[in-house]
Design a protein around this nucleic acid. Structure first.
Lengths: 152, 152
DNA sequence: CGCCTTACTGCAACTCGTCGCAGTTGCATC
DNA sequence: GATGCAACTGCGACGAGTTGCAGTAAGGCG
């Protein structure tokens, strides 16, 4: 089991209190989902999470997993963006707002951090009077390697 | 029936020849799907298209509609991007590469044209060595009106 | 410790979209 | 106009994700 680099243990521990503070409940199912998320680095889709939960407990049901993801997103514990196919991908680390750059050819993915995106966000604010949510952003394109491979 | 401003009639008419040129066939089902698309301005999802086709012919089946959309995209007749929920949205007008700006609060949508996006594309080319496909781009955010309404 | 409220779970049914397969039919050729 | 190939259609089953509902259980309170 690779250790969770995403959030440190203490931070995951606060989820229980955050739930309680909102009148929500700490259940075995939620505890298990959190456990799987804590062991996840980077991104995970709903169905991947469901699958991993089922390895620990085959009785896990889809609706509970998807509803828990919604709750955790409301708490700010996770966030989602969309992959190239439009599928939701959840980020386990809300450490910093960031977007994604995904290559349509090879599927390689890189992050865009807030600093890099700032000039772009400013541009849209100025030209379109529009605030961009970087978190939700996935840009499709072609990476350098695929460009070289395809077009010489 | 609002006239199709998207492509002029002549352009739609070439689809049949484009299909034939690739060894593909002109079928009543495809003819009807094209007819519905020709009467569509802007964007449409697969299920919306299916629904409209069923109004003309209740026997229309999902697989034919979705497969035809793929074919038409291959021909360059339509293109898709993803809405905020990740659902595919097809653009009927391939007149110009463009992206979208969608407000998470009110759903309002604006287009980003190639000229506006050019500096951004250049930036990613330079900093990440990555070519962005503007067509596929949908930026989530908050429009001026919603910002004003929510945050004074 | 037991009660009570209500958030939560699990089920079943549903939507959207995809895929393999068998039967159909466009269309090129004779 | 008939023939034959293979692209296409429609079917049925499936996977991902959502929702309403009835039953379960978290956890606050006495």
């Amino acid at each position: 089991m690779t250790a969770a680099r995403s959030r440190d243990r203490a931070t995951w521990g606060t989820v229980r209190e955050e739930l309680r503070a909102r009148g929500m409940r700490w259940t075995p199912q939620r505890r298990q989902i959190l456990q799987v998320l804590a062991a996840t680095d980077g991104h995970i889709t709903g169905s991947e999470l469901l699958e991993r939960c089922r390895k620990l407990d085959p009785a896990t049901t889809p609706s509970t997993v998807y509803r828990t993801l919604d709750v955790l997103e409301e708490l700010g514990v996770i966030r989602h963006s969309h992959g190239l196919d439009g599928r939701e991908e959840f980020h386990v680390q809300p450490v910093a707002e960031h977007g994604h750059l995904v290559c349509s050819s090879c599927g390689a993915s890189r992050e865009i951090d807030a600093a890099q995106a700032a000039p772009i966000a400013r541009a849209f604010r100025r030209t379109h009077d529009f605030d961009i949510f970087l978190d939700h952003l996935t840009l499709a394109g072609r990476c350098a390697a695929c460009r070289a491979a395809q077009a010489g």
